[in-house]
Design a protein around this nucleic acid. Structure first.
Lengths: 237, 237
DNA sequence: ATTCGTGAATTTGTTAGACAACTTTTCGGT
DNA sequence: ACCGAAAAGTTGTCTAACAAATTCACGAAT
């Protein structure tokens, strides 16, 4: 019974819609430079023959590339590749994160979180501070290793980013948090350290206090300590 | 004659493809919570009636939303909105950047550039250092206010990001650079300061020297000074 | 011979209808 | 009340056609 379920699962996950696969294929060709910036893609007609699908499917694939800012189409002319310097979307194309990628992503996040904490310490409103404290409370009351605990953890960081008053911080931290969500969850569940939640809560508390005190240096430092600890717990576990 | 040209121009720029406009409309509804996460979009049939277009156009619009990680479709079931916490793309949906947005974007960039310079100082290889110096030379030889000068400037920062050895830094700085490209260009051309290039080059030189010396603190500090100066020149000019 | 239109060929944008594949709902029999 | 099969609903894909815009080629006028 379970074996059958696995087979079904595999079959489902294996059969990605054609448009998605073609979009991925073309995107890879563009990113690897096989199709150079400034040049044109083959016509929809040729692509449909090449991939053995209808023009409809090809058009849906190209739609995705447009949305990613990889190409630009002009009626009557064709679809041309946009130079890398003008691309306006940032995307994690590899869905699953390897450990090395996790480390690199955390390395990107660290200076942003520190700056976020510093700015939040200086600029936060009472409402924003309350939202930060609320996320902390939700995490305190959650069961260990639960998904809702991880969510509260990420909400905590997101609330701080929102308290900077800079929407780019809020959006980008939410994005990074989402990318790390699954990784954090598995890291926590695999961890042998039973006090992981208490340690996290203590580090969070220090951050809340320093932000509430409007002390940017201390807030940045408290955030740094928290991230270093969390990073160690995640990548070592 | 010229008046007619303007009219044509306006008509052209006003006529965005239907799929793009619908995608934008739906994306806004999702981001604003009008269509809540977890719920389903109206069926393609209903949307095609609602917007007065064919189902094909609706499908292309939805294709874009899928690419943005906003929705997920299951054959036979429908198209459901993905929770914000799981979105895996970061995008500047507002195409044109207002001055306030530029300031906020620079504020996001600053801690990343500092971290980038620090990491590059510690980790750079000779080749990577040469690439940084090369961008600096290209900027030196470019004409004032030229597009190629701005490109060399951005290449300089990108080269540093690559020298961190962390591809996320390289990708994200390239993304931010692209977003700021047009703004930097106009800021330079409008600036009354004729020495803007020389000042920039001097600040860059300091960064190169400190990175070459493998001194992360000095490199970070040099980068901070450069960004503060550049930011002032851009937003004040 | 060169340049300039004009029309033909290309190419993307959009529509319509049909069928396949899959999911959800409905309804009838036990 | 429950179960299973049929029906309805929904997304995925294909085909055929036309509209709209661009590009190209050819011929005419200078």
């Amino acid at each position: 019974m379970t074996r059958e379920d696995v087979l079904v699962q595999l079959r489902v996950s294996a059969k990605t819609p054609a448009a998605e696969e073609i979009a991925r294929n073309l995107a890879a060709s563009i990113r690897d430079g096989v199709i150079a910036a400034g040049t044109k893609l083959p016509t929809e007609q040729r692509l449909s023959v090449q991939y053995g699908v209808s023009r409809t499917v090809v058009r849906e694939a190209i739609s995705r590339l447009k949305s990613d800012g990889l190409v630009e189409s002009r009626q009557g002319s064709g679809v041309s590749v946009i130079p890398a310097s003008l691309r306006r979307s940032f995307k994690l194309h590899g869905a699953i994160l390897e450990k090395q990628q996790v480390i690199e992503l955390l390395e990107l996040r660290q200076p942003l979180e520190m700056a976020s904490a510093r700015l939040a310490a200086v600029r936060h409103t009472p409402q924003e501070l309350a939202e930060i404290a609320d996320a902390q409370d939700r995490m305190k009351e959650s069961e260990d290793w639960s998904d809702e605990g991880v969510q509260a953890d990420l909400d905590f960081h997101h609330a701080i980013a929102k308290a900077t008053g800079n929407p780019f911080y809020a959006d980008f931290m939410a994005f990074l948090g989402g990318a790390l969500h699954a990784t954090i969850l598995t890291a926590r569940s695999e961890s042998k350290n039973p006090n992981i939640k208490d340690i996290t809560l203590r580090e969070h508390l220090k951050i809340v206090q320093t932000i509430a005190a409007r002390d940017p240096d201390a807030a940045g430092q408290a955030m740094l300590l928290h991230l270093q600890g969390a990073s160690q717990r995640m990548t070592a576990g």
